[in-house]
Every structure is written in C-alpha cells, then in structure tokens.
Nucleic acid binder design. Structure first.
Length: 234
DNA sequence: GCGACAG
DNA sequence: ATCTTGTCGC
C-alpha cells in the first residue's frame, strides 16, 4: 500500500551539494574493517542497464550460491535515474532502483558485490559503502575502471595485486582475476575487510574477469530493459 | 587554469 | 551507461 518505491517518500538530494552532504553524513556509519563472513553461503550481484534514450533504467539483483555459483534467486526493478550522472555521486542515480530490487528478494544475501567502488571514492563513500550502510549487509565494490588513486600494474598472473593508493591512504586493490587480462579495482564497502573482499572476488572469478555475480546481474538487467522497451511504463 | 572523472 | 564490425586468441 505504501511503498512500491522505497525511497520516494524521503528526502532525496536534488543538487550536488546536497548529495555530497549525504555522503559526508553517512560515511562514519560504514564499517571498513569488519572481517565479514569467510565462507558466505549466498552472494548477490547488482547492476543497472540504461535505455539508449533518456533515464529509463532496469536494476537487477542476482543471488548466487557462493559455493557452486549457481543462481538461486533474481529480482528486477524498472524505473528512472534518480539523479544525473556525476562522477562521485553515481550512487544517487541508481540506489532507489537497486534497493527496490533488493526488497523484492525473498532471501537475504550474505554479501553484496557492487558494480562500482566503495572506499575508493573522492569522499571515501562510493556506491558499495552507501548500499552497505543502507541495507546493513556486508558489501564490497568491484570497479572495471578507476575513479581515484594511483597504482603499479600487478603481475600478469591471476591473483596478483597491487595497492590502490590515494594520497597516503590505501583505498583498495588492483586485482588480476585472469592471466594477462585487465585487472579490476576492489575496494571495501561495509562490514568486510580488503583481504576478504579480494578473496571473495577471486572465488567469484574462476573463469571470467568480472565476478559471476556481476555478470549474471548484467545479463538480467539488460534483458529486463529489453522486455520493457516496447511495453510497460511509457 | 587544465585535465580527470565509477556507470 | 550506450552507440557499433571486425578481429585476434584460447
């Protein structure tokens, strides 16, 4: 009755200054060291696909069995971008849709793997931190390209890594998930330390560069967007 | 002042 | 993110 869209009845930033203020206010709530489950049973992947035209989007969550990587449950949410794309404020764009999709799951995943950064962010509060704090669930960020920081290229072998540093701080790791392939950028989100975050990412990438969780979510949101293209909400 | 800049 | 063909490699 009251909610199909979880965040529509609360204040949502309308300006860059407001959004940055929200990040500064929530940042202290993120747990950046909690070890998190060493052997999570279920891991969720989240991703969003956008329509070629405007800001119409489809968010997807896929819950996988951490051991077999089999898909256990999925959920999608169709909506519109809640904020323009601004590097550093990316979360405000898709958070409402992602939370809505998460709310449609019947099970609660033990870890969220986000498509984007966590601590490796200008104000140290990227999407993974934000999603983790709002849900209270352990969360990590896996980005395909850097947002902040400097690093040395890791060795070519899968598993090799180097520190991602911003100024004097280590904000994440540049991790090779496949021999001779472009590395990914792993950073802490909430309730899980960097060592475990990287271990989880390696366990999720037995064959491809990106985590299986992310790959499944990517497939699903693109499919959902296509299904709605010529039907649903105008 | 001039770039860089998650998705 | 999305728009896009072929091409190199396992």
């Amino acid at each position: 009755m009251t909610g199909t869209a979880p965040m529509t009845d609360v204040a949502w930033p309308g300006t860059v200054a407001e959004a940055e203020a929200v990040q500064d206010r929530l940042r202290p709530l993120a747990d950046l060291v909690g070890p998190g489950p060493a052997q999570p049973r279920t891991i969720a992947g989240l991703d969003v696909a956008y329509a070629e035209d405007g800001d119409r989007l489809a968010a997807a969550v896929t819950v996988l069995d951490a051991r077999t990587l089999a898909v256990l449950e999925t959920a999608v949410s169709i909506g519109r971008a809640a904020f323009p794309y601004v590097p550093g404020l990316f979360a405000f764009r898709e958070l409402p849709a992602l939370l809505d999709a998460l709310g449609r799951l019947t099970t609660t995943p033990e870890l969220l793997v986000c498509d984007g950064h966590g601590l490796a962010h200008p104000r140290r509060f990227g999407l993974a931190c934000h999603l983790g704090v709002l849900t209270g669930l352990p969360a990590i960020g896996v980005g395909k390209t850097p947002l902040v920081g400097r690093w040395d290229p890791p060795a070519e072998q899968r598993g090799a890594w180097t520190a991602l540093r911003d100024g004097s701080e280590t904000v994440g790791r540049v991790l090779r998930t496949r021999d001779g392939t472009k590395p990914v950028f792993v950073s802490v989100g909430h309730r899980m330390g960097l060592d475990n975050a990287c271990a989880q990412v390696l366990a999720l990438t037995p064959r491809y560069r990106l985590p299986e969780t992310t790959r499944q979510a990517d497939r699903l949101c693109r499919l959902a967007l296509g299904r709605t293209r010529s039907s649903d909400l105008e």
